[in-house]
Design a protein around this nucleic acid. Structure first.
Length: 243
DNA sequence: AATCAACTCAACCGCCCAGAG
DNA sequence: TCTCTGGGCGGTTGAGTTGAT
């Protein structure tokens, strides 16, 4: 007997997540927790499969995710753990705080496997991530996080994503923000309004509030200023207590 | 400047497992 | 014990990006 699909496929959206969808998902989870993933999209007002929501949250939106380049130490850890455990990415990810199984899997498949296969040492600064990070610094300007102990996690490597809105979270995650930051993001500094019942019905105003808080709005055009403002604002919040 | 190939990584798919009834 | 359901995992895909020519 075939297994029933995880959710009703008809009418559900697929493909890349928009900034608005991200916002809806984050807001809902921050307010209610994820609970039942299958029921979450309906309750949150998202036209997505529960699995898709879970994946998006786990791999990208969770505040404790560390984004940016893998350090040499992390890469060595992955290689070592892979020798011991094989392709058990979730187990490996559990040993690398802030890294997701998907991310580790990608790094392994794109970099480490080849490196092992070629049995050669990586050349410093020839690493594609480093190249792209410097690309970003050149195009947007120097943006550094002084309290980051690991150089690679202070570098923003993925500002090339088509859906520009997604990278707000890249920036913010790299700053290891806590729930207080998210609360501020969603409330726009006014905690009287935004934490009330959130659904697709009022997501537009929430999104507007979100964008007004940080600058020029969530549009594909002129988003550099927006994300720069967002980044700057996030930097101001680094002193918040740990999540 | 245009084209093509290589690369990256977010997202999807399908299977497996554990727990509930 | 069996069936069903939801969560989680690993493999794979494909759109977007970058570098080479």
């Amino acid at each position: 007997m075939g297994r029933a699909p995880c959710c009703e496929k008809l009418g559900l959206k697929k493909g890349p997540w928009t900034a608005e969808e991200d916002l809806i998902l984050i807001t809902y989870i921050n307010q209610n927790g994820h609970g039942n993933w299958r029921a979450l999209p309906k309750r949150a007002g998202l036209l997505r499969c529960g699995k898709s929501c879970r994946l998006r949250w786990m791999n990208y939106l969770r505040p404790d995710i560390k984004r940016g380049n893998f350090t040499k130490q992390e890469e060595e850890t992955i290689i070592k753990l892979h020798q011991e455990l094989g392709n058990r990415w979730s187990v490996i990810a559990a040993r690398l705080p802030g890294r997701t199984d998907n991310e580790i899997k990608n790094v392994w498949n794109t970099h480490l496997k080849k490196r092992i296969h070629n049995n050669s040492q990586p050349k410093p600064e020839t690493h594609l991530h480093a190249i792209r990070s410097s690309h970003f610094r050149q195009s947007v300007g120097t943006v550094s996080v002084s309290n980051s102990s690991q150089h690679s996690s202070s570098e923003i490597s993925s500002l090339t994503t088509a859906a520009a809105g997604l990278d707000a979270y890249t920036v913010m995650d790299s700053l290891e923000m806590d729930e207080s930051f998210w609360s501020e993001v969603f409330s726009g500094g006014d905690d009287s309004s935004a934490t009330s019942d959130f659904s697709a019905g009022n997501s537009d105003s929430q999104l507007l509030q979100f964008s007004n808080t940080f600058g020029s709005g969530l549009s594909a055009e002129g988003d550099t200023d927006f994300w720069y403002n967002l980044f700057s604002r996030a930097e101001d919040l680094l002193d918040l207590p740990d999540f």
